[in-house]
Simulated assay, not measured.
Amino acid sequence: MLLRALLRPCARAVCSPGPRSYVHTALDISGIYPPIATPFTDREQVDYGRLEENLQKYADVPLRGIVVQGSNGEYAYLSREERLEVVRKVRQVVPKEKILIAGSGCESTRATVAMTREMAEAGADAVLVVTPCYYRGRMTISALVNHYTKVADTSPVPVILYSVPANTGLDLPVDAAVTLAQHPNIIGMKDSGGDVTRMGLIIHKTQHLGFQMLSGSAGFLLAGYSVGAVGGICALANVLGAQLCELERLCVSAQWQTARTLQYRLIEPNAAVTRRFGIPGLKQAMDWFGLHGGHCRSPLGPLTEQERQELKKVFMDNGWLQSHH
């Protein structure tokens, strides 16, 4: 535990650029978080009862917190009211010592500012703000810095940058991340791109600020820790949360050989529930592991039978599922 404490970034006190000056003490976000799925009924309504049952099962896992309305929560298919209600329900169930991070990103800066405030009011401890991407050709470093600065200036809670190029077609540029890390209300970044060199460079250029990097996928969780990341927001944590927490423990206690063996067994299942089969694959795996994955909201559809068999084989081949499933 001592080593883990040493690896955690210290609280920082940084003066905001410009005429306004204030001190912000960073929230320590180190640890493992599942970006939880949103259960739906067969009529595609949010199933709050099953959501609560999933959260009660996650309470038995040593997760640092919960991420709500990330990509795996199908936030792009939820109305504003549904997004906020899901966060309220999660906050009612999740104990205060667990960090609740809510996705508040929208395409416009104005809408993101408003959603960020509302997510804070709904109970979020921090917000995860995805890069706007619809007009990605004009998402220059200047545009992105301006967007995030306005959000962070007005946010009642700390802001975490979110780069997920597989979904947005846009990598948050290193220079933009380094500039934004100087803002006292921007405390970290979730990087889902998988370029560990890039992650390491951002950490190298921002570590004096206490800026915290989170790996955005279980496939490179060990690699992230090796270059200075403090945790991960990983889709696979919805299914193998205990195993990812064990990988975290091995990394922060420098048991690299054992950690590597475990990491190898997570790579294929992680790819299967992210790039290969996406959210329908994640929800199917959740069903096998005693959680409520269930239906997706249209236009996302279920896996075909062939896809289900392929997904099952991946989990079986890596020793996570038995043949009776």
Rank of each mutant, 00 (worst) to 15 (best):
T197C: 02
A242C: 07
T274K: 08
N167L: 11
G193I: 10
N167S: 03
G216P: 05
A272Y: 10
L214G: 00
G224V: 11
D175A: 11
R198G: 02
D171V: 11
D175M: 03
L201G: 00
L266N: 09
R265V: 06
S217W: 00
P269L: 03
H208Y: 10
A259L: 11
I202D: 03
H183L: 08
M189F: 06
D171I: 02
A166P: 00
P184W: 13
K190R: 02
I202R: 00
L221V: 11
A223I: 04
T261S: 06
R249I: 00
Q263D: 09
M213L: 11
D191R: 07
V252M: 10
G241I: 15
V239D: 11
F277Q: 07
A254V: 04
C234D: 14
V252F: 11
A166Q: 12
V174M: 04
R249K: 14
V227S: 07
G188Q: 05
Y264F: 15
L172V: 12
L240R: 12
T206R: 07
I186T: 07
R198H: 13
Q212Y: 03
G200M: 06
A176D: 05
V164R: 01
N185G: 00
A272R: 06
L201A: 01
C245L: 13
V227F: 05
E268S: 15
A254K: 13
T179G: 01
T168R: 01
E268D: 15
L170A: 03
P184F: 13
L247G: 04
T261Q: 12
A242M: 10
R198C: 01
G219L: 02
S226N: 07
H204D: 05
L282P: 14
C234L: 14
I267M: 14
L236Q: 10
A229S: 12
G194F: 08
H208V: 02
A259I: 10
G224W: 09
I267P: 07
L209K: 11
A176G: 09
A237Q: 11
P184R: 09
L180G: 12
M213F: 01
Q207V: 11
T261V: 07
H183K: 02
W256C: 02
R276E: 15
R275A: 14
Y225W: 14
E246Q: 15
F211I: 13
G281L: 07
